[in-house]
């Protein structure tokens, strides 16, 4: 486990300021939720943190180590994993293979050309364990393209877990998941509490307030407030800018 610190991060798409001077300190083991309306720049921020998108300025550090200049694969090696809002998996691989290839990235060289990887029990066992934690072990041998939407969301989670992250960035893990599925998912995330440092982006306020230690509110690329769920819920600025009617649902 380790800390995540973000200093004065910015990103422009042409004239559009999508990330506007964002600073954030996430303590070790904290679940830090980021909420904000559609188009606020949440996914962009995650992409900058994970190294998928270069930042225009600012710095990102995990566990005190500056990673601003590192690529996405290099950051993963240091323990920074992300999941995607729009499911991003290897459609032709089975669920198990999807996860096993993530395990493989962290265990031994991938420049091995002869031994059949399918028979590497270590990889398969670790992959199965990650699938189990995400609640997908019963579908391990199904081709990923044949899985349902809810199963895809769990596969996303399993893949992220398999990289042995210290800091986990989850971009709307519950997107499109409802009812019991969502509840089970929240319960699962709750179990991770204290195991990883987590940045959680979520529109589902119930999930956010159930899980988060602290919440930041992102509007037009700016963090307008950060605080405990209670403090955020009662912050007048936040209510005006974002929560609006949803606030009633939550209360």
């Amino acid at each position: 486990m380790t800390t995540l610190s973000v200093r004065n991060l910015t990103k422009n798409f042409g004239a559009l300021k999508v990330t506007d001077d964002v600073s954030l300190e996430v303590a070790s083991g904290e679940i830090h939720a980021i909420i904000g309306p559609n188009g606020a720049g949440k996914t962009t921020l995650i992409s900058q943190l994970s190294g998928q998108l270069p930042s225009d300025s600012g710095a990102v550090a995990i566990g005190g180590q500056d990673v601003t200049g590192l690529s996405m694969p290099e950051r993963v090696k240091l323990g920074l994993a992300r999941s995607f809002q729009i499911t991003s998996i290897l459609p032709g691989f089975t669920a198990l293979e999807n996860v096993a290839v993530a395990v493989q990235a962290r265990s031994g060289s991938s420049f091995r050309f002869f031994a059949p990887v399918a028979q590497e029990e270590e990889l398969n066992d670790a992959a199965l364990a990650a699938l189990k934690e995400a609640g997908l072990d019963d579908r391990a041998h199904v081709r990923a393209s044949a899985l349902s939407h809810g199963e895809h969301r769990r596969l996303e989670l399993a893949i992220a877990l398999a990289t042995q992250p210290k800091v986990l960035l989850l971009d709307e893990p519950l997107a499109g998941v409802g009812g019991e599925d969502a509840e089970a998912f929240v319960a699962r995330l709750k179990r991770f509490k204290g195991r990883f440092t987590m940045v959680l982006i979520e529109h589902d306020m119930e999930a956010v307030f159930a899980l988060a230690d602290r919440v930041s509110v992102l509007v037009y690329g700016r963090i307008i407030a950060t605080g405990t769920p209670e403090a955020i819920r009662s912050d007048p600025q936040v209510r005006a800018a974002y929560l609006g009617e949803e606030e009633e649902e939550v209360a």
Binding site: S50, Q52, S71, M72, P73, V76, K77, A81, R82, F84, S88, I89, L90, P91, G92, F93, E97, A100, V101, A102, Q104, A105, R106, G108, S109, S110, F111, R112, F113, F114, A115, P116, V117, A118, E120, I159, A162, T163
Partner: peptide, 24 residues
């Protein structure tokens, strides 16, 4: 069928995903 082959095929399937789990 090797480790290398799985990574290489994975890149064909979805390069961004492979980067996100730590491969260049």
């Amino acid at each position: 069928g090797s480790r290398f082959g799985r990574v290489f095929t994975g890149i064909r399937e979805n390069a961004t995903r492979m980067e996100a789990v730590g491969y260049s």
